[in-house]
């Protein structure tokens, strides 16, 4: 399977045309010039697209792939209408599948599996909520255990738990070396 078709498969929900738009890139570099991350890191948007065009799989292992904040500035400015930010998301999906997912990202994902929230409530905020006249616990999965069950069902259906390496017996992340 070619790199292109694997990325297309990962990005199915955002559409094949969106993914394929990188084939039109003429390497002008307007993306890199617009990139706030490129100012402070060695992430070079143009280079990522260049490597995708060349079918270069090493792009999946490059930590720079994760330096994009998905600000969409490059996407807005691209003269060839390459949907760069969405492509980055799909390429990251493939990288995650191949095990290139940082421990901190796996932890963020595990909070949603455990609580339904990527940033769960704490005691300090509960107290502040009461002071502000709000319910102590928000009317979310925090308050409705059945809703949390629905989230977990979805996660099992898409195998997101396996992707993240979540152990349901210990309700925590499996030990996994970081690639």
């Amino acid at each position: 399977m070619s790199l292109l078709s694997e990325i297309e498969e990962c990005g199915e929900v955002i559409g094949k045309d969106t993914i394929d738009s990188f084939l039109a890139c003429m390497q002008c570099g307007k993306c890199t010039g617009s990139c706030p991350s490129g100012r402070v890191t060695s992430y070079r948007t143009r280079r990522v697209i260049n490597r995708l065009q060349a079918g270069d799989r090493s792009v999946l292992a490059d930590p720079n792939l994760w330096m994009c904040t998905t600000c969409y500035t490059c996407y807005e400015r691209c003269p060839r209408e390459v949907r760069i930010t969405d492509i980055i998301r799909a390429v990251r999906n493939l990288a995650a599948k191949e095990g290139y997912m940082s421990k901190s990202h796996r932890a963020t994902a595990s909070y949603v599996i455990k609580t339904g929230h990527a940033v769960p409530i704490n005691d300090e905020t509960k107290k502040l909520r009461k002071e502000l006249g709000l319910s102590e616990v928000p009317p979310t999965t925090h308050k409705f255990p059945k809703a949390l069950e629905s989230i977990r069902k979805i996660i099992k259906k898409t195998n997101f738990d396996k992707l993240v390496g979540f152990d349901w017996d210990t309700m925590s992340l499996e030990e996994r070396g970081e690639k």
């Binding site: 994009c68 998301r89 949603v112 409705f144 898409t158």
Partner: peptide, 28 residues
Amino acid sequence: DLNGASCCPAPGVFGSFDLNTWLLIAAR
């Protein structure tokens, strides 16, 4: 109140991990 809502889930985070899971939870 939108009872039983969850994390949106974050577009650039969960969208970067698995777009299928992202869409399903957001759609819910």
